[in-house]
Amino acid sequence: MLTCQELTELVTDYLENRMSFMDRLRFRVHIGMCRHCRAYLDQMRKTIRTLGELSAEPIPPAIRDELLARFRDWKR
């Protein structure tokens, strides 16, 4: 049986869909029975969602100029 501590190390593989069928099953059985780990998984999902809502940093002018220069070169 998977412990809670072990589960916290598998969360990323679970969320990124990189688990074998049996591991996934074991993970889900644990989540189904353990509300603390359900809360942890939920926190992790919300963390990822929060990160997704951060707006991108503005591109520094020097890099923007380089990108534009590359666009022009590439068109030639």
Binding site: C4, E6, H36, D42
Partner: peptide
């Protein structure tokens, strides 16, 4: 390996 102070909702 169980939660001691568990994560909050």
């Amino acid at each position: 390996g169980g939660w001691a102070p568990p994560p909050e909702r």
